[in-house]
C-alpha cells in the first residue's frame, strides 16, 4: 500500500511531540525581560553619569554586545540560549552572538575566508534587509518631503 505524502505528513505530525510551548514562552519572557532590564539598568547608570539620551542608548547596546560576545567566547551563551530560546535571540545580544559564534567557529578556515567572511552568515541578512528597509524609508521621506 503506497502512502501519499499528505497522508504521511499527517501521520508524522501526530508522531512528533510539539515544543513545550508554555515553558518556552515563560523562559523567553523571563530571560528576554531580564536582558532588557539589565540594559535599562545600564541606561539609567550612564545617564546618571552624565551621558545624554543618545549616548546612553549607544552605550547600552555596546555594553550588551560586549557581554554577549564574551559569554559566547566562554561557551556560555549557547547553553543559556538552549533554555531561553527567543529570550536570548531577539535582544541585541542575539545579534552579537550570531556574529561572534561563526567568527569563532570558522577561524579554522583562516582569517580571511573563514573568520572574516563567515562572520556574516547569520547577521548578514539582518544588516542587508535592515539597511534596505531604511533606504526605502529615506527615499519615501525625501520624495514626499516628509522631513
Amino acid at each position: 500500500m503506497k502512502m501519499t505524502p499528505e497522508e504521511y505528513g499527517r501521520l508524522a505530525q501526530k508522531a512528533s511531540p510539539p515544543s513545550p510551548m508554555g515553558k518556552n514562552l515563560l523562559m523567553a519572557f523571563l530571560c528576554g525581560g531580564g536582558i532588557c532590564a539589565l540594559g535599562e539598568g545600564f541606561r539609567l547608570l550612564y545617564q546618571w553619569l552624565g551621558a545624554d539620551e543618545e549616548l546612553a542608548a549607544a552605550g547600552v547596546s555596546v555594553t550588551l554586545i560586549f557581554l554577549a560576545v564574551l559569554l559566547t567566547g566562554l561557551n556560555v551563551y549557547d547553553n543559556l540560549a538552549k533554555h531561553a530560546g527567543a529570550g536570548t535571540l531577539v535582544p541585541i545580544t542575539g545579534f552579537a552572538n550570531s556574529v561572534a559564534s561563526p567568527a569563532l567557529e570558522f577561524k579554522s578556515e583562516g582569517f580571511i575566508l573563514g573568520l572574516g567572511a563567515k562572520m556574516f552568515i547569520i547577521a548578514g541578512p539582518v544588516i542587508v534587509y535592515g539597511t534596505a528597509a531604511s533606504i526605502l524609508y529615506g527615499l519615501v521621506l525625501w520624495l514626499f518631503r516628509l522631513y
Binding site: 518556552n24 528576554g32 525581560g33 532590564a37 535599562e40 527567543a86
Partner: peptide, 23 residues
C-alpha cells in the same frame, strides 16, 4: 519602575519571538 517597564515590554517582545520559533 523603569526597570519593571523594561522587563515587561522586553519580555513580551521576546515571547512573541518564541511563538514564531515554536509555531
Amino acid at each position: 519602575l523603569s526597570l519593571l517597564k523594561a522587563f515587561l515590554v522586553g519580555g513580551a517582545l521576546c515571547a512573541v519571538g518564541q511563538i514564531l520559533i515554536d509555531r
